[in-house]
Structure formats: C-alpha cells, structure tokens
Amino acid sequence: MGRKRRITWLELLLQIPFIAYSATILVICFLLVFTPFRSTADLARGILVSPNSFTFDNFADAWRNGLGIAIKNSMTLSLLTCLFTALLGGFAGYAFSFLRFRLRNGLYIFMYSGIYVSTMLIALPLFLQYRQLGLVNSMFGALLIFLGLRLPFSVYLFKNFFDEFSIELIEAARIDGLADLRIFFWIVMPLSVGVLSTVILFNFTAVWSDYLIGLLFLQKDSLMTIMPRIMNIFGSGPMVTQATPLGQGFAGLLVSTIPIIVIYALAKKHYITGLTLGSVKS
C-alpha cells in the first residue's frame, strides 16, 4: 500500500473520544502503579497528585498483614483449578464431541447452563451444607467449588474446539484399535494446545479474581485468598476514609494485578479465541 493516507476531518474528530477514554484509563493505571510506593503522609495530600515520596513500606506492611499467604493460597487454588478443569473438562468435551450416548444433548445443555448461573445463587445453600460437612475453611472444599464453577465454560470451550476436528482422524484411530483414553491423550490433546491455553487463561484469572467464594468459604487467616485479603487490608467496608491504610491496600491491588497482566501479555490471542469461539462465527 504505497498510497499515502489522507486524514479526514471525521478521523480528527473521532480522536476526541479516543483520547478522552484513554486518559481515564491512564489515570486508573497511574493510581494502580504509583499509589503503593507513596508514604502515608504523602497520600494524605490526595491520591492523584505528583508523588513526592518513594517507599516499599506499604508492601512490607501488606506482607505482614497476610498478603504473602493470600498469594500462595490463591496461586495454589488457581493452578489446581486449571489442572483439573483441563483434565475433567477435556474428558467431558471429548465425550460430547466424539462419543454417542443417550441424553447427550440434554446433559450438554445442563452443563452449558452452568456458565450463566450467578455464583450468588449457590453460595448460601452450599455454605450451609459445607458447614454440616465441615468443609468451610478447607482448601479442598474451596477447590471443589472453583472446579464446579469453572467446568461448564471449560467444557463449552473444549467441545467447540473438538467439533472442528475431522472425525475421520478419530475414526481411523478407532479402526487401528485405539481405546478412547489413548485417543484422548495421544491424538486429541497434542492437537489442543490452543484451546488448553484458552481454558487455563480464563480459569486462572477467574479463580485469582474471585472475591465471593473466598470471602465465604475461606475465612481463616491462614486460608484467605488474595481479593478478600486486600479488602480486609483496606478495612473491608465501602466508603473508606483517608485514615485507612490506603497505600497498603493499593500494594495488594498492584501485586494482584501482576499475574493477570503477565498472562494476558503472553496470551492475548487466546483470550480473544475464548471470547469468540462459537459466538462470533460467521
């Protein structure tokens, strides 16, 4: 395209909303990145002023208040959820795509509906049941909830991806006498790195960003996950006054954002795949 582009008036005019929206995003980024490094005295001047202090105290204080443990807990839960949703979700997707059995459609619709059901609806009944079973304040109990919450979307992604496979490939493997389990691990999974990345990306971020489940089911100090811990550091209520440890809380916010940003920087492509798979096909 050697042709020189002419910039039209419309394009110039359109820059206004683009710049305005970008500016608001940059303000949020500025607050997220700089606030944690400012001293309490400096922050008392207001949060959106040029910083005149630089300190790591907020991070040290947040760590003392349990941020480190919370990161460890959230990381454990996120990674285990990724592992098991990949495995169980992959199995289920394989069944829905390549195997025929009674009630297949009905069971798929059941599984699919889970994507849209509000977590709030399951919170109270599960909480009461977990109390009876002694599963409140247990990592296993929380992991089970995260698995249940994340499996429907994982299965949906796997099924949509597998549906694009050539069925001849699977049939050929069957004629060669391969059992489904071997077909799954030897043939299907090696071809599914793309969808696996998408599943892992979405499930990691969802568990890492969770607030409600952690808040209700992991209340003990040693088990708290990152988002409830951050809100706890802030003083947990809304309408926080300036007297609260703002810098510490923002230290938590910044640290909690790092894995998310790293993941998206590495795998933005897979994020868009996940959003569009099955929904934006022409």
Partner: peptide
C-alpha cells in the same frame, strides 16, 4: 459416530462436580 456407552465414563467426573456445585444447591 458409533454408539458408545463409555461416553458416560468420560463425562462422569465433570458431571458429578457440576451437579454437586450447581444442581444440588439450587434444589436446596
């Protein structure tokens, strides 16, 4: 696709978890 009952075995683990986390509390 040939009719295969082992579909249930592939589906079962995920189905049990989802039924416990969604269906069970909603009935409750």
């Amino acid at each position: 696709l040939t009719y295969r009952n082992n579909g249930y075995w592939f589906l079962l683990p995920a189905l049990l978890v989802v039924a416990f986390i969604f269906l069970n509390p909603i009935i409750r």
